[in-house]
Nucleic acid binder design. Structure first.
Length: 614
RNA sequence: GGCCUUGUAGCUUAACGGAUAGAGCACCUGACUACGGAUCAGGAGGUUGAAGGUUCGAAUCCUUCCAAGGUCACCA
């Protein structure tokens, strides 16, 4: 039982015995005592004033007395303005450290017997991954690690959007202008090569559109369809889609390609397979470097027709309605949403149809109790509608669905826009942070004795730690501003700062040599800074639990920083190896060891690896 | 326009109804004959977007307003 729940249930019992009042567990707020006061945990007794009909101070006094008397761990207390500061004895902290340091996997919670599926990344195959994907991937990966640590069985999946008009654009441009270029012949990474042709398509299309605008047909369209007083550029911006669909040569060809693909036309399918395989090879490299992997991939080319039967079934059961034009809709007005079309009037499926099918399929495949979708918050409405529809259908997995929505990533200069070329490429970004780490490492010269290979591995860990921590420390649902300059910082609240705490400990432990963990005798005169570190350490399991419950890796990130900072302080002011008592030395070595373990585990939950030196 | 989300130091951020709003960056000042200075200590910087309300207590809950973003497709 954790100390918090011991104190909490103690307070409940005390309220009952002293005032005959039933309070719910957790209704008396219990928080770590602020630094400026003495004590370890603080109980707020205000909620008891009515039941006890006494002043807060008096209640706190009585409660404190009772708890010191009846709870073994409580060694003393003091009362300030209705806040009851409880002190835990040195014995408690000694026991805590001894147990934790001997534990197999401190911070790993016992199995929950439940399975959770996490879907993340889910890219399109027409262009390489960018900064937005990185936030998605880090969140998804980290969540999956945290859920795993919290005792869930985890399945990591991604849905690969490998079909549709976008990839056809790349294919068409390659066919028309590629002259047989391949990743091998050009030396360009596969996903970047395909992305290059996507860009070529867009610029050729733009050219074509521009000259059409100056032609008779274009002028006629403007004269006919522009709104009153609408300027030419505005009109043509708005008209772009229509032009693509109705007039464009390239658009026509791309659409024909899509149709050919859908009808399984050999040459097109072969080209599609070839180009997608380039992209996958590229993605694999990026994922690999980021240190993430998946248990199962779902390809939209295989699932995009799914879901129709589910809709038909719902229609039969009267859950959905057919409109006059033949389209099928679901009425979600009871849930505060609108009507949603589930099937086009021509009977073809939509995004949501496919998602219904995929959800069902995945449940069939894994029978997971929960399914988490890591998708940007621009799709909030879609997921609301999707989940409500699944609930209406009474699917067994309906209550376990969760949309982990995260805010989009902005640059200091504003939004990322592919059309304006301001998209930050994932591979480039990693190159940059690693280069920065290399530069810094060189200046320091700590790693010169290592082989080039070892050195590169450490440099990679440092660079990626900076990048990943910078992104993952922000609460998911907030939009974040990504400043490339700050993301390579190695000082302050950063990944490398936390790594540095770990490296310092490793260095000390190397010098200390082997030691049996938990072999220290009772150490009574704990320093404040030792207690601060112990307090952080003792909170770790609880942090894992809430981070899992809230799907929020930033809690773990902030915890790691806090722990590292507290350790740095302790380390600065107290000597571990040269302290005056052998017993204290043993204690401090264990304290350091546990800190290193927790930092390593915690950072691993964020997808960040620790170097042994740096 | 309806709905959703977000507004905290110059910048990036923490806080899940509790004490004097906590950090980092940038700026200024200090600390290595000490286990790793990618560190530590200190200074300066805040009417938590605004106004009301609920509460013993509000950045946090409620109302109104302001600002930014998202979304309201037989696109994905």
């Amino acid at each position: 039982m954790s100390i918090v729940s011991i104190l909490d249930s103690g307070a409940v019992k005390a309220a009952k015995e002293l005032y005959g009042h039933d309070v719910e567990s957790g209704s008396l707020p219990l928080t770590p005592t602020r630094k400026e006061f003495t004590g370890d945990y603080t109980l707020v007794v205000f909620p008891l004033t009515k039941a006890a009909r006494k002043k807060p101070d008096a209640i706190a006094e009585e409660l404190g007395g009772w708890m010191q008397e009846n709870i073994e761990e409580v060694s003393g207390y003091n009362v300030i303005k209705g806040f009851l500061n409880l002190e835990l004895g040195a014995a408690y902290w000694n026991d805590f450290l001894r147990n934790a340091v001997k534990a197999e996997n401190y911070g790993r919670l016992s199995p929950k017997g439940k399975k959770v599926m996490v879907e993340f990344s889910s890219p399109n195959t027409n262009k390489p991954l960018h900064l937005g994907h990185i936030r998605n991937i880090l969140l998804g990966w980290s969540c999956s690690k945290i859920l795993d640590a919290a005792g869930y069985e985890v399945v990591r999946v991604q849905v690969v959007n490998d079909r549709g008009i976008a990839i056809c654009k790349s294919m068409l441009a390659w066919k028309l202008f590629g002259e047989g270029e391949t990743p091998d012949s050009s030396g360009i990474k596969g996903d970047h090569l395909v992305g290059k042709y996507y860009v070529i398509f867009e610029s050729k299309f733009k050219e074509e559109y521009k000259s059409w605008q100056d032609s008779e047909a274009g002028k006629a369209a403007f004269a006919e369809k522009a709104k009153e007083g609408e300027p030419e550029d505005k009109f043509f911006k708005r008209y772009k889609n229509t032009y693509f669909n109705e007039h464009s040569q390239l658009g026509q060809q791309a659409k024909e390609m899509l149709l050919a693909w859908e009808s399984g036309e050999r040459e097109t399918v072969d080209l599609w397979k070839k180009m997608n395989s380039w992209v996958y090879a590229g993605f694999d490299q990026t994922y690999n470097r980021l240190g993430v992997e998946f248990d199962k991939l779902y390809y939209e080319s295989e699932t995009y027709l799914n879901g129709k039967d589910l809709v038909e079934k719902g229609l039969k059961n009267g859950l959905f309605k057919k409109r006059e034009d033949g389209s099928v809709i679901v009425d979600l007005t009871d849930a505060g949403l609108d009507e949603k079309v589930l099937l086009r009037s021509d009977g073809t499926s939509l995004y949501i149809t496919q998602d219904l099918g995929t959800a069902h399929l995945r449940y069939e495949d894994y029978k997971s109790d929960k399914m988490v979708y890591v998708v940007a918050d621009e799709q909030n409405y879609h997921f609301k509608a999707l989940f409500e529809t699944i609930k209406l259908m009474g699917e067994p997995y309906a209550d376990g669905l969760h949309h982990l929505a995260y805010g989009m990533v902005d640059l200091p200069t504003g939004k990322m826009k592919s059309r304006e070329g301001t998209v930050v490429d994932a591979d480039d970004l990693m190159d940059e942070v690693i280069a920065e780490a290399r530069e810094n490492t060189k200046e320091r010269g700590e790693l010169e004795s290592l082989s080039a290979e070892e050195r590169e591995e450490i440099i990679k860990r440092i660079g990626l730690a900076a990048l990943k921590y910078f992104i993952i420390k922000v609460t998911p649902k907030k939009r974040m501003i990504f400043d490339p300059k700050e993301s390579v910082d190695l000082q302050g609240q950063t990944g490398p700062y936390i790594q540095n705490a770990f490296v310092r400990i490793k260095s000390v432990l190397r010098k200390a040599g082997e030691q049996d963990h938990g072999s220290f005798e009772l150490y009574e005169e704990l320093e404040n800074q030792e207690k601060e570190v112990l307090l952080r350490l003792s909170k770790f399991p609880e942090i894992v639990e809430t981070a899992a419950a809230e799907y929020d890796p930033s809690e773990v990130a902030n915890f790691c920083y806090d722990l590292a900072k507290e350790f740095h302080r302790f380390y600065h002011d107290h000597s571990i190896l040269n302290c005056d008592s052998d017993n204290v030395k043993k204690f401090r070595i264990d304290l350091s060891y546990l800190t290193a373990e927790v930092l390593k585990t915690g950072m691993d939950l964020l997808g960040i690896q620790m170097p042994d030196r740096m």
